[in-house]
Amino acid sequence: MIEWQAIVGHYNYYVTVFLMVAGLYIVIAHGNMIKSLIGLGLFQTSVYLLYISPGKIVGGTAPIIDPKYTDYSNPLPHVLILTAIVVGVATLALGLALVVRISEEYGTVDEDEIVAMDQDQ
């Protein structure tokens, strides 16, 4: 007996876990640093979903106070994630700046090639 109700109700969690795992896979499996940073971005975005989706109330509305409504979705995760997105792009830029410097120094952005070059010296 499969509980369809529970599966439908938890679908957002399953997708969140999938995005997280896909990000993790990219970070581990791909040697290219830019692709790894994008994988980290995927991982980070799945955390946004993990925070925001439990705060939603079906039949509620966005947390902007209005006498016509009584149910609001939880504002606290929104605040945390809003700042996390902007911080995320700033740190992504920092990572990419490092990649640019590495590429200028080594002529490649592939981890395996860089390790091989370091061992040759």
């Binding site: 902007v86 700033a90 830029a93 990419l96 700046a97 640019v100």
Partner: peptide
């Protein structure tokens, strides 16, 4: 802070 940081980052990459 946000607008100037984003622009400064863009300028840094574009100059490079």
């Amino acid at each position: 802070t946000v607008s100037s940081t984003m622009l400064a980052i863009f300028y840094a990459f574009a100059d490079r």
